[in-house]
Amino acid sequence: MIRLKSKKTLPLLFVLPTMGILSFVTIFPFIYAFVLSFFQWDYQIMGRPFIGIQNYLNVFQDGRYFSALGTTVIILSAALGLEFMLGLALALIFVEEFKGRNAALVMVVLPVMMLPIVVGYTWKLLWNDQYGPINHILTGLLGKEINILWLAKTPTAFISIIVTDLWEWTPFIFLILLAGLTSLSPEIYEAAAIDGASPWARFRSITLPLMRPVIGVALLFRGLESFKIFDIIVALTQGAPGTSTETISLYLYRIGFQYFRMGYASAANIVLLVAVGCFLVVAVRLLRIERGG
């Protein structure tokens, strides 16, 4: 009797805490926000008038919303591309055994463990045009006076943000790719080597195809993480100059927690969540990531 009963209830019992907590902190608030998104909830206004889908219409006419999305995508794609290339190169080097490999591995991976907000502020000091070492190093390397106002102009601010992001997260992609490379079976390479295939050919026709799922996972993980980019921007530029480096997370933060437009912020958040959801479905299809089971 007990055994029979447990066969049905135990699996559910095991999943229950997880599902309970997750729905408690995601589903209920989500419903709350959904309801709120149909009201004008600005703290300066008395009452909370019902305004139907007006908030949603406003989101779609909000140029700043879309320019923040654009900024996010620019940073994401540039950072992700560079991180992937650097990470892959490093992984290909580190997959081989060499003297001091373990020590070097630990050191290369350290940035991943820093608080992103600390990373942001540290780099803010590094980029500083007067006191920071970066201009100083460039001056030394190039042999002429370099005085770039990294964070004051839009193009260099983007470069600063991307390099900072790259510094922290390249090791992450590198680790995943290294894990993937390490798990490839050596026999395949032996066969290829006997056939006399060049290293490049081996890389293209064996490594890349076999690594495809791993690369997919690495890019997806990192891509979605950098879509959330917030800490580094807060520390480095606060969206300046103008709002040119304002990302979607920063903009949402401002609507919600600086201007306190709760109804509008709810609508803007829901639009974003739906967009991310759609993107995910498409991305997963495209990358053909194994869906478990």
């Binding site: 902190v25 209920f28 608030p29 979605l224 991310v276």
Partner: peptide, 23 residues
């Protein structure tokens, strides 16, 4: 199911925390 769960991880925190704050 597991993958569905994993997608929760990628929700932008600012978008999530907003209703959570009110709640």
């Amino acid at each position: 199911f597991p993958f569905g769960l994993l997608t929760l991880r990628v929700l932008p925190p600012i978008a999530v925390v907003f209703p959570v704050f009110l709640f």
